[in-house]
């Protein structure tokens, strides 16, 4: 299973990077979302995967059942998903404004500040 998960992360990363390398603004957003997903899945699976048992303490007990999933990467990823969302929303707005301001959706056209 681990190899398939790793492969999924790899493919997400490759497609994400490919999108980021495009010059079209729309692709940029797609690339960001894909990369975010890839990173979350990487952190989630890096600690090892446990099928089925969430880290929830049943009533009457004081500790989580044996073999429960590792809660720490989950907590980290949960934070990451939310922050990723914030980033995506900001990027969408930024790109929208950039397009409106420049009248262009080609990132290579945004060269005013770097021109010699």
């Amino acid at each position: 299973m681990s190899m398939l998960i790793a492969l999924t992360v790899g493919v997400l990363f490759a497609t994400g990077v490919f999108c980021l390398l495009r010059r079209c603004l729309m692709r940029l957003i797609i690339g960001l979302v894909l990369l975010g997903n890839a990173a979350n899945l990487l952190v989630f699976s890096a600690g090892g995967l446990t099928t089925g048992v969430p880290a929830v303490i049943p009533s009457g007990e004081t500790v989580a059942p044996a073999g429960a999933a590792d809660p720490l990467p989950q907590a980290l990823v949960l934070t990451a998903i939310v922050i990723g969302f914030g980033l995506i929303v900001f990027s969408i707005t930024l790109i929208h404004r950039a397009r409106a301001a420049s009248g262009n959706d080609d990132v290579d056209a945004f060269i005013e500040t770097d021109q010699l």
């Binding site: 681990s2 493919v11 990487l42 699976s45 090892g48 500790v63 809660p71």
Partner: peptide
């Protein structure tokens, strides 16, 4: 993508014996 694949796989092959998460689960 290939490098990230290898990186993920290497990470998954490290088996930590004492996970911080387990301590947290016990104290929760």
């Amino acid at each position: 993508g290939g490098l990230i694949f290898a990186l993920t796989l290497s990470a998954m092959q490290i088996h930590v014996i004492e996970r911080v998460g387990d301590t947290l689960a016990q104290m929760s």
